[in-house]
């Protein structure tokens, strides 16, 4: 069953065409990668999926909702069913790590404080942070910890769908591999569907089930990572050589 359906999406900034008719579909329980050269519009496509950006033509269906003409109420419901990890974490700088992770729980649920604290502690440990880090503020922690905290916040509502924007960029190789393992563990543990933009070859080979490669404004290849070399795109040939 497909969780995300992208059909014929066109994106134009001013006079510059970014996407010219993209089609892809992402199945439930899959770890799906959006790949391509810099500036090809991977992150733009991800932003379009999470309703941060409009596109000019086509349609995107997420969990059965068409995001371009969705009602505000449905949109709010949808937003609680996914988690998004931004490239640099995008933690709220005025809140501590604990409050950052707890925020959706505080706003959307009527759980009591001790229960929220339990959940926060669990998520903090799940992503590999220490409990003692919870009281630190985003400005006091490293980039890698910000990513982990961002992931904990994205996972806080136990979403069905997880969007990751370059999750391993800027991490040292060891942390990057740990992150990959974490993602695989989460998928088997929580049955997540994960969509990620990545440049990290190792992580691409280790984690992704299927990929879409965007090149020259179109999808150059969609399918499993094993068959990727069959594509004729020049980017694919040089990237996976």
């Amino acid at each position: 069953m497909s969780v995300i359906e992208v059909r014929d999406v066109q994106t134009v900034f001013g006079t510059k065409v970014i996407h010219d008719g993209l089609n892809l579909s992402i199945n439930e329980g899959e770890i799906y990668g959006l790949l391509g050269p810099s500036g090809c519009g991977k992150t733009t496509l991800l932003r379009e999926m999470v309703m941060l950006q409009d596109f000019s033509h086509g349609s995107i269906d997420i969990l059965g909702h068409n995001v371009s003409n969705i009602k505000e109420r449905d949109a709010q419901k949808l937003r609680r069913e996914w988690g998004v990890l931004f490239q640099f974490g995008a933690l709220f700088s005025s809140l501590s790590i604990r409050d950052n992770i707890a925020l959706p729980l505080v706003e959307y649920t009527d759980l009591n404080a001790s229960m929220i604290e339990e959940i926060v502690q669990f998520k903090i440990n799940l992503v590999g942070l220490k409990s003692s880090d919870a009281d630190l503020f985003p400005s006091q922690i490293s980039g890698g910890m910000k990513k982990k905290a961002g992931l904990a916040r994205a996972l806080c509502m136990d979403p069905k769908l997880l969007f990751l924007d370059e999750p391993t960029s800027g991490l040292d190789p060891i942390s990057a591999r740990e992150f990959d393992e974490l993602i695989l563990k989460l998928r088997s543990l929580l049955g997540l569907t994960i969509v990620m933009v990545s440049h990290d070859l190792q992580s691409i080979y280790d984690t992704l089930d299927r990929v879409a490669i965007i090149d020259e404004k179109k999808i150059a290849y969609e399918g499993t990572i094993v068959d990727v070399k069959s594509s004729k795109s020049q980017f694919v040939q040089t990237f996976f050589k």
């Binding site: 941060l52 998004v84 933690l91 709220f92 925020l103």
Partner: peptide
């Protein structure tokens, strides 16, 4: 402005705030 640059606003929107 600073929140916009650090993508905090985007994060808020995706979380439905």
């Amino acid at each position: 402005g600073a929140m916009k640059i650090t993508q905090e606003l985007d994060a808020m929107k995706t979380m439905g705030f």
